[in-house]
Design a protein around this nucleic acid. Structure first.
Ligand SMILES: NC(=O)c1ccc[n+]([C@@H]2O[C@H](COP(=O)([O-])OP(=O)(O)OC[C@H]3O[C@@H](n4cnc5c(N)ncnc54)[C@H](O)[C@@H]3O)[C@@H](O)[C@H]2O)c1
Ligand SMILES: NC(=O)c1ccc[n+]([C@@H]2O[C@H](COP(=O)([O-])OP(=O)(O)OC[C@H]3O[C@@H](n4cnc5c(N)ncnc54)[C@H](O)[C@@H]3O)[C@@H](O)[C@H]2O)c1
Lengths: 217, 217
DNA sequence: TATTTAACGTTATTTTTTTCACGATTTAAT
DNA sequence: ATTAAATCGTGAAAAAAATAACGTTAAATA
């Protein structure tokens, strides 16, 4: 791997940790923070923190640590938080409406600019400041607001169809809340937000813990 | 690692993939499926699939592949999907209500048995078949329904306090939707469902793709 | 029934990721 | 000004994970 590529590509696991560091920094009041502080809070070791930060070429100060604000700036830059990105939502059900109403996305430079549904009952209803639009308005909204990200909040049966529709209309990345594996062309980014899957993790961990306890005896 | 431990512990990454295999199998109609089929659909390679399945000691048939139904059963067992687990939700806002209304959790053997809020306006309101209860009912519900999992759907400022409250009331695992790192004792399982974080991934991937494109020229 | 073939299971190899170790640097104290 | 202490940065070692290789097995076919 060349030095140049390194700034572009680095381990997926590191990327995930960088996101976590970023969040941690937003919760940090002090001016500086050491790799050890970060590591302790996350239950990992400090060398890993330092290595992750070395990928993005960020330098700390020996004896002091990392300057919280400037590191946060750097990470915000890395994740493109500084520029506003417009997003649309398809499916104005429970989840779609929760997302559309959520104020916190603005911190991430995300703006919801449209919400769509195919249910005539839902169309024209207000959701926060938006009005639910029918699917054939997607094209217009995508062009008008230069939307690259589409969110799928429809039932699983409809998800693939909506994915195709979004791609047809020029969407580049799909944030998918439906619990199905979408089939899209190579160049489309799909990020699955399969909420229920976490329950499997929790159940499994609970079960394992119980086994461990039983084993101790 | 002993043979025995292996069935208890294996790589986190494998566990995550097993969850994905499981979901894929629920979408599969045929009687058998090969490691190659699975791998192709997920963009990984078949050896990895076989290795993952070897961790749970599941045997396929040469020349045919894996028997979909029995593998699914096995995985459902692994993730404790067969037995019902009761769960409570704290925070009857947009997200809490969306979760409480969601029918899909029953497939995972999950039942929402209580939803709580501290807003007098919300208390006593119906959410699906549940009635929003004040926080001091948590104890009663947890005992009555043997609840081990608590879901945090309150604003981030309140999240730590609610986490403490849940732990006090005997909760063993926290499903945390608030974007904060919770501090709890070692033996409590915390699974973060930090929805907004995915947006960072998407933004980063979009940005990287753009850089790559620029680089090609 | 023997042969061929597809797909598995598992060991070996390679690659990736994490941890270790230690020299370099900055700040603070003597 | 010198020394001490904390923390960084990074190359080397270790560990973990993924991939490759290949022998084994069950089904299909001749
Ligand atoms: N609500 C949750 O807590 C939750 C949890 C996990 C996963 N999910 C997933 O998120 C998705 C949405 O869940 P929800 O609870 O909001 O469901 P919901 O039933 O409340 O809403 C679905 C919405 O999609 C609309 N819709 C259906 N078909 C459509 C189509 N072809 N085109 C446009 N709109 C269409 C419906 O009119 C409805 O408004 C589902 O795939 C679900 O599995 C939801
Ligand atoms: N809605 C989303 O799409 C979304 C997306 C990402 C993250 N989140 C996170 O999920 C959490 C909930 O989001 P939301 O949109 O449902 O918020 P919301 O404001 O709609 O609901 C929050 C609820 O919590 C209740 N509450 C506040 N303090 C409480 C306390 N001390 N005890 C009990 N209840 C209390 C409020 O009365 C309200 O009903 C937040 O932490 C938010 O950051 C939400």
């Amino acid at each position: 791997m060349s030095k140049d590529e390194r700034t572009l590509y680095f381990p997926k696991a590191s990327l995930d940790r960088l996101k976590i560091y970023r969040r941690l920094l937003t919760e940090t009041d002090s001016e500086y923070i050491s790799s050890e502080d970060i590591a302790n809070k996350l239950g990992i070791n400090p060398e890993l923190v330092r290595k992750d930060l070395s990928y993005i070429n960020y330098k700390g100060k020996p004896k002091v640590g990392y300057h919280v604000q400037s590191l946060l700036d750097e990470l915000n830059e890395l994740f493109g938080l500084k520029k506003t990105t417009n997003v649309i939502i398809v499916g104005a059900g429970h989840l779609g409406r929760a997302l559309a109403n959520f104020k916190g996305f603005s911190k991430y430079g995300i703006k919801i600019v449209g919400i769509f549904d195919n249910d005539p009952q839902k169309i024209n209803q207000f959701v926060g400041e938006l009005v639910v639009l029918p699917l054939d308005y997607i094209n217009r909204v995508v062009r008008r607001f230069n939307v690259e990200i589409g969110t799928i909040c429809v039932p699983e049966e409809a998800a693939q169809k909506i994915a195709d529709l979004l791609v047809q209309n020029g969407i580049k990345a799909i944030w998918n809340f439906a619990p199905v594996k979408l089939e899209v062309s190579e160049d489309i980014i799909v990020v699955d937000e399969d909420i229920s899957q976490s329950l499997l993790t929790i159940k499994h961990l609970l079960e394992r813990k119980q086994l461990e306890k039983a084993g101790e005896k």
